[in-house]
């Protein structure tokens, strides 16, 4: 077996040179190797979204992504949201609308919201977009579909949708 692989990860603006077992997921790399425990493991199979981070600006499930595949990528996690203008607004809106209870899915939800808003600005459609040929207004139905990859078992969904509405209004 080939053993460990050298990897350079840029996480929240900081470069990390690591040597990793190729089985290590980006999620476990962040949590167990880099001490960035804000990103959570809820299923380890891409079925809950708690592990959502941004990789080169796009939201992904870090639990299904081998860390070695992220060599050279820019990774952004919840820990960097406080330094991001939009991220901070999303965090504040979550607080105002109680878009969280236990807090376990919250990091993934917030990373997902930030990326979702960028996707929407870029004109990406969703499964509920009726007219694929033009931009879709970000209705509640659109928000819910675009956030469907982030499960919340406490059921903070209403507050999250309200928070997103507020962020898009201002």
């Amino acid at each position: 077996m080939s053993g460990h692989i050298p990897v350079r990860l840029h996480v929240n603006g900081q470069a990390h040179d690591l040597s990793l077992d190729p089985r290590v997921t980006l999620l476990d790399c962040l949590r167990e190797h880099l001490g960035l425990t804000g990103t959570k493991k809820g299923c380890d199979q891409g079925a809950c979204g708690a592990c959502t981070v941004l990789a080169d600006g796009e939201r992904i499930n870090s639990c299904l992504t081998p860390a070695v595949q992220c060599d050279g990528m820019e990774i952004v996690t919840i820990e960097a949201m406080a330094n991001d203008e939009l991220g901070t607004r999303v965090q504040d809106a979550f607080l105002a609308h109680d878009g969280l209870q236990c807090g376990y899915c919250t990091s993934g939800q917030i990373c997902s919201v930030v990326a979702m808003l960028a996707e929407h600005r870029a004109g990406r459609p969703s499964a509920v977009t009726e007219d694929l040929t033009g931009p879709a207004p970000l209705t509640d139905v659109e928000i819910r579909e675009r956030m469907a990859g982030n499960l919340c078992r406490c059921g903070a969904y209403n507050g999250i949708v309200a928070a997103i509405r507020e962020v898009t209004r201002t």
């Binding site: 939201r59 499930n61 990326a115 990406r124 459609p125 969703s126 499964a127 977009t129 694929l132």
Partner: peptide, 26 residues
């Protein structure tokens, strides 16, 4: 999200968008 797919092959765009989650589709 590709404009050509959306305009010319909407059935494919819709199928893709109904699969998995946004994170997985990325």
């Amino acid at each position: 999200a590709d404009d050509r797919v959306r305009r010319r092959y909407p059935v494919l765009a819709r199928a893709l968008l109904k699969g998995a989650s946004p994170q997985l589709r990325n």
